[in-house]
Design a protein around this nucleic acid. Structure first.
Lengths: 149, 149
DNA sequence: TTAATCTTGATGCAGTTGCATCGAATGCTA
DNA sequence: TAGCATTCGATGCAACTGCATCAAGATTAA
């Protein structure tokens, strides 16, 4: 909470962070859409659900892991359920809540998306870095920006 | 356009790029909103207009510099014009086009936003990096992701 | 137990974005 | 110069997001 003015390097990092993400994410999403797949957010949800295995996840947990607003999770699940990729089950421990699990079609979608997704990451991130070391350094520095607030 | 699978480091850089930007941008936007200011996009437009000085900019140029879709620029300018921050003038060289210039209120808004914006960048980016060198390295690596394709 | 409070998830409404299309003006080709 | 294709910016419509609010269930305290 300092009143310190950020240095030029910091401002530059900020500007490029926004631009780089905007460009790369846009390009990856475009590749997925071009291949006829739903947005990346759907993949993210399915991936979290796969990590949870059979137990499924509460919407609240999805919210926390993907940093989404509550009402957005609710509606994202609506769409995914309508498309047949997830299923909402009543939660026995908490009558207010529910358990979300991926359907077979959901797992299948994830499996079919991955090759395209993977290729897009390689094309729009991997190919633009010059070495493994650069990727590691970038990941490490970005990691510093993520936690703590 | 290789079929190479991205390395773990590349995938990690990708994931963190998305998360870091999401978190940092959200935090900066929240700081601005809390202070009663419009979204960052408005500042971006005004900043581009200031660089253009008196000549103003064509919507097409704004589109290119900010990587926005044409229809989004059109509507963003609608809102900013309605709020009195920009003005659209007919373009003498091209009857289809127009020239966008910032009004006095627009310049003033930018001036008033900068202290808050600056503090937010420092708080959410600068304070999380450990040195000037880290900021420079991060900016350089992010720069690699921006151009060329 | 009962009442007050908090948590979980859904929903109405307004604002914003994406997509397709349109009208107007320009530039190109003949 | 006439006709056709292209470019510039606007707009109708559907989808998505943010915000406020709500209902139902859980938790706490008297």
């Amino acid at each position: 909470m300092s009143d310190t003015a950020p240095s030029d390097a910091v401002i530059n990092a900020w500007v490029r962070l926004v631009r780089a993400q905007q460009g790369v994410l846009g390009a990856v999403e475009a590749d997925l859409k071009r291949a006829g797949f739903p947005p990346l957010g759907w993949y993210d949800v399915l991936l979290e659900l796969r990590h949870a295995r059979d137990e499924g996840l509460r919407p609240l947990e999805i919210e926390g892991r993907l940093l989404l607003a509550q009402h957005n999770v609710s509606r994202l699940l609506d769409r995914m359920e309508r498309a047949g990729y997830v299923e909402r089950r009543p939660c026995v421990e908490d009558g207010r809540g529910q358990i979300v699990v991926a359907t077979h079609a959901g797992h299948d979608l994830m499996r079919r998306m991955w090759p395209i997704y993977q290729a897009a990451i390689d094309k729009h991130v991997g190919a633009k870095l010059q070495s493994e070391a650069q990727a590691q350094t970038l990941a490490r520095l970005l990691g510093r920006l993520i936690d703590g607030d």
